[in-house]
Structure formats: structure tokens, C-alpha cells
Amino acid sequence: MAGRTTFTTAFAFATAIVIIMGSGAIERAEGRPVNLCSHTAYPSLCGPLVRRLVSPRQATHHAIRLLESKTKSVLTQAARYKSGNQAIAMCYETFSDALVNLQNARKSIKKRNVIAINAFLTAAVSDYGACVDGFIETQQVNTVQNAADMLRKMGTNCLSLSTLIR
């Protein structure tokens, strides 16, 4: 009987430690890295961006940097066509706003300000969504609209990753 009580007590103690330790950290589960992208809305877009990263903070930072790079590329593309298309002109403005929000989100990661990170990423996703909505309203489909939709999805993934930062 004493062996069973000792085992039960030891098991309860070990379980409590696992729960306490596991509540704040998602980096490891049963000795293997957790797939951070399984928490995102678009895991197939996320996977290649944050491959091998186990820290939500590092993964978010990396994903935001890549999103900034893609946004700059699409911004250059939109600049070519903005004078002849009102929807593209609006997207040009919202992409510029999104870049500012992404830069502020990255700065907030360094300051470990999770609330600010989430606010800036939400604003960036909203900027991309406004661009997509503009194309829907005018019933246009073009490369800028397709890129805006991809950026919105990437931004949504960044926001999902940022919610994992502790």
C-alpha cells in the first residue's frame, strides 16, 4: 500500500510540474519541437517561412521581416499602375501604412510588448484587407489584388504567431 501511495504522490507531483512548466512554454511537447504553424490560419504558407524555429518570438520576427520584404515588392509593382487604377492607388496607400505597422510590430518584439505587437499586426492585416475589399467592390482581379490577398494571409499568420509569445 505504501508503494502505491508513493507512486500516486510522485505521479501527481510530476504532473503538476509538467502543467506548470508547460503552461508558459510551447516550444517542446514530449521531447520534440512543436509545430508553431499548426496554430496559424494558413499553415502551408507559414511552414516554409519559420521552418526549424521553435521560439514564437523568433518565428514572429522572421515572418514579419519576410512580410515586409514582400510588401515592399508589391508596393513597387503597385506604384507602376496606380495612376490608371483607383483600386491600385488605394492599395498603394494601404501598403505604405502596412509597412509602417510592420516596422512598429518588429520594434515591439524587441521591447517584448505583446499588446503593441498584436495591435500593429492587426492594423497591417486590416490594411491588406482594405486593399482586397477595394478590388472586390470594383470587381477587379489582377496581380496586385492577388498579391494583396497573399499578404493578408501572411499577416494573419504573423498575428497568430504573435499570440504565442509569452
Rank of each mutant, 00 (worst) to 15 (best):
A2Q: 07
T6I: 09
A14S: 06
T15C: 01
A16Q: 00
I19T: 06
E27I: 05
R28C: 00
C37K: 06
T40P: 07
T40S: 08
A41L: 06
A41E: 10
Y42D: 04
P43Q: 03
L45D: 07
C46E: 02
C46W: 01
G47K: 15
L49W: 07
R51V: 08
A59I: 01
H62K: 15
H62D: 11
R65V: 05
L67S: 14
T71A: 10
S73D: 15
L75K: 13
A79H: 10
Y81G: 01
Y81V: 09
S83V: 12
N85G: 03
Q86D: 12
A87Q: 05
M90I: 09
D97V: 02
L99D: 07
L99C: 04
V100C: 03
Q103Y: 11
A105F: 05
K107E: 13
I109C: 04
I109Q: 02
K111W: 01
N118W: 00
A119T: 07
F120R: 10
L121Q: 09
L121C: 02
T122H: 13
S126E: 14
Y128S: 00
V132E: 12
D133N: 10
I136K: 10
Q139D: 11
Q140C: 01
V141L: 07
N142T: 00
T143I: 01
A148P: 00
D149L: 15
M150E: 14
R152Q: 12
G155F: 04
N157L: 03
C158G: 08
C158V: 06
S160R: 05
S162G: 08
T163L: 03
T163K: 11
R166I: 09
R166W: 10
